[in-house]
Design a protein around this nucleic acid. Sequence first.
DNA 1: CTGAAAGCGCTTACAG
DNA 2: CTGAAAGCGCTTACAG
Lengths: 336, 336
Amino acid sequence: MKRVTMADVAERAGVSKSTVSQYLNQRYEYMGEETKKKIAEVIDATGYQANTLARSLKQKRTFTIGVIVANILHIFSTQVIRAIEDVCHQQDISVIVCNADDDPKKEEKYITMLRAKQVDGLIVFPTGENKTLYDQMVQERYPLVFVDRLVEGLSVDTFLLDNKAALRLAVDYLVEKQHRYIAIITTSLIRHVTPRVERISGYRIALEQHDLPIHEEYIQGVNVEDISIALAHLLALTPRPTAIIAGNDLTLMEILKSIKRDKKHIPNDFALLGIDDVAYAPLFEPPLTTIAQPAFQIGEAAARCLLEKINSESMNDRRQPGIHRFQPKLVVRASC
Amino acid sequence: MKRVTMADVAERAGVSKSTVSQYLNQRYEYMGEETKKKIAEVIDATGYQANTLARSLKQKRTFTIGVIVANILHIFSTQVIRAIEDVCHQQDISVIVCNADDDPKKEEKYITMLRAKQVDGLIVFPTGENKTLYDQMVQERYPLVFVDRLVEGLSVDTFLLDNKAALRLAVDYLVEKQHRYIAIITTSLIRHVTPRVERISGYRIALEQHDLPIHEEYIQGVNVEDISIALAHLLALTPRPTAIIAGNDLTLMEILKSIKRDKKHIPNDFALLGIDDVAYAPLFEPPLTTIAQPAFQIGEAAARCLLEKINSESMNDRRQPGIHRFQPKLVVRASC
DNA sequence: CTGAAAGCGCTTACAG
DNA sequence: CTGAAAGCGCTTACAG
């Protein structure tokens, strides 16, 4: 019933706790064969399992990191999390994932909670609204890494898509396909979230480079619930857009639902290009052309970067934090 | 740089650690207003955050649970996890998720690791291959709950779909649609994993109830990589099945890929019914008829059950563990 | 080669 | 109403 403790093991093996501890930590250097064997036996017999909590308290290291995603509904988040978990578990680091649900209050709560739990570091998809908190961590030189979103004026390693390149790829391809009237729909812009903002601006830049005029009405940043309306609005415009870019997976899903509901035909009614290579993209009729984010690589890089920070003895051998951009890939199928 | 500790707060507030601790734990009963105010001030000024580790060590409670899923690639797992996280976070319980990747060795590692971390309880989608370990937890009366899979001879609360009912629903519907030649494909059966085994047997029972013969060749349990082959095999049989049931989401995805590749037409070439109501089901052409699992409810119930166990003071007010079946729902669309 | 002692940062009877 | 002391289960110099 009661868990066996190191003291118990020591007693039963007739040695001191220190020796058991040495044994556990493989500090065999000066340990007698006899002693080793005895301890091994007792551990085996009792099924003793060291209490990580106690060790962590003493060592000031929990071998656990926290991940706070802004919104877990995006598959991008899910994929990044998986990558993080993969690299962490390989190194016997646990990860606690929290979903801020795009709510800065929740984000604050989770940051506080995870730090109280003494996690060794944090990977966050920042809502952007808790600058004081972020800044405090930077000041303390607490191991911190951002993913997907930039926070202005903060020197934190940030891993994200090269959004500008993504939109350049998208627009280039659509133009090549003879489209001149290209619209874009994405989820709400009110919070100035990096990917959305950068994708819109990337869109503008790309159009300009093709000497195409920018119709402000062609740019729709609306709540998920209103995407269907935004789409209808777009299709009622003159000139009517012949191609539409879905700014992310959630947007794409909504557009697809509208298409089914209204029995539109792609690419005849309009060409469609999605950002985020969703799993069902090849299954849709027609198969969807998308821009893929290297989510796995982003997550992996973020995790490695964080672990490196955690392991860097002196704060000094840490490099200057920077922005790490990852290249998008165009996956050509048949929707445009 | 250095984190401020309770001793620091006590000193600066001119009181003892005990008092600070009382304050933190809202044991205000006998506390002077003055004292309260002073402590509050110091905490505010220093940004003091209690170290949960130390508290946990003393209280023998970490306010953290572990979740080990057999295979995170199933959306069912993802949805259950989300539900668990939702109910836990509401109660300020953190959750650490691990993916055993269908590997009993990994499962063992994670169980050991999580218990070493002193998590207050465990929700596991058991691989089924670590009976000794499971049994040990049962013996210790360690809070444990299973999801999705039964482990024979073990008295553990288990939350899962009523698989038999699910197949009854499926077969009933197909029969109603005039199908007499109904086949089923699912992922490998070698490990005798509950959902697969029960779905096959549910399929048999349902066919019998309709006085339909059972063609053993119509039952395919194969590895994911071989699903496409199994499908081709099925379609080459005489009599050729007119309807196919996909045993889970991964199977469905593979079948769909084959369909696209071979330019088959649903439901003309054959009717298709999937278990797991995947997000893209309404988007496929034709929209897919599926059997939905109440994944969210299952996760929620499992989490509540675990938290209850954790909170039940005496072991005695614990109910007898049992099997909790959840009812499937037929979502009629157009693929059969 | 091994052990005694202090300490990590809390909580919790208990005394006063 | 508040504090001294012991203790949670480890690790880590240090002594011998």
